[in-house]
Simulated scan of single mutants.
Amino acid sequence: MLVLLPPSETKSNGGDGAPLRLESLAFGELNPVRERLAEALTELASDTDASLRALGLSERMSGEVTRNATLWNSPTAPALERYTGVLYDALEVGSMSAVERSRADNRLAVASALFGMVRGGDPIPGYRLSANSTLPGLDPLRTVWRPALEPVLAAERAPVVDLRSGAYAALARTHGAVAVSVVTELADGSRKTVSHHNKAHKGRLARALACVEEEPDDLDSIAVVAEKAGLRAERAGERALRVIVA
């Protein structure tokens, strides 16, 4: 099973891993694109004002440009520890047993504007690049990534559960993946999408799928894992699962 997580704009500092080596990352087929983007990002970081404009950041976030400038030299941390925020708080990798963490590192993959896709245990540095960013001299990231990333996803034989947000799903389309949505059910029975619940409950589902001993192999068994984790889930189509928050 491969569970695709969205990344987060916020990332933890530091790390105790060696500096970035692309050959240490999973999905090595993506390395030519990774290298091209990393080089473009570090070159852009030599001009702070241009970086802020390209990345859509304010002056008070110039520290993010410094992160990009030291991309090749700064320490790394496992991807599941590098990304932070609501979803990763709900994932709670720090509370997993050694066996559960090993499963999570293998089953969970994080979509990334810079790296395309990395497994949970892959060592990556802090950086700043969003799916909606456009680096000078390069096509939009979805145009850059689709020819490289879509064949990798298409070759995945295990079931794929897609928890990515819209901008990151646009970097590579998946065919046959189980798409997960989260809705809030109001007292009158109506439903609507709420971002905070979306991230938290996707994090809880990812944790359940990562830790379960026997990997689910179809939509119904994925729904069973969700229900056992205390989530209310229902089919929303042939390849779609809906998580409902009261």
Rank of each mutant, 00 (worst) to 15 (best):
S102Q: 06
R103Y: 08
D105C: 13
N106Y: 00
L108S: 05
L108I: 01
A109L: 03
A109C: 14
V110W: 06
V110A: 08
V110T: 13
V110M: 07
A111S: 14
A111Y: 07
A113P: 07
A113T: 07
G116F: 01
M117P: 00
V118G: 05
V118Q: 05
R119A: 03
G120N: 10
G121T: 12
G121C: 11
D122Q: 05
I124E: 00
P125A: 08
P125T: 04
G126F: 02
R128H: 14
S130D: 08
A131D: 05
S133L: 08
S133H: 02
T134V: 12
L135I: 13
P136G: 13
P136L: 12
G137N: 06
G137L: 07
G137K: 10
L138W: 02
L138I: 03
D139T: 04
D139P: 01
L141G: 02
L141I: 02
R142G: 01
R142W: 03
T143W: 08
V144K: 09
W145I: 03
R146T: 15
R146S: 14
R146Q: 10
R146E: 12
P147C: 09
P147A: 15
E150I: 05
V152N: 13
A154P: 00
E156T: 03
E156Q: 11
R157C: 02
A158G: 00
P159K: 12
V161P: 04
D162W: 04
L163Q: 02
R164S: 03
R164K: 03
R164M: 12
R164E: 05
S165L: 09
S165I: 09
G166V: 14
Y168T: 10
Y168N: 08
A169E: 01
L171W: 06
A172N: 11
A172I: 15
A172D: 11
R173Y: 06
T174M: 15
G176A: 04
V180K: 09
V183Q: 09
V183R: 15
T184F: 09
T184H: 13
A187S: 15
D188H: 06
G189E: 07
K192R: 14
V194G: 02
S195A: 15
H196P: 00
N198A: 07
N198T: 10
K199C: 03
H201I: 06
H201L: 06
H201S: 05
H201Q: 15
G203H: 04
R204Y: 10
R204V: 10
R204N: 03
L205A: 00
L205I: 02
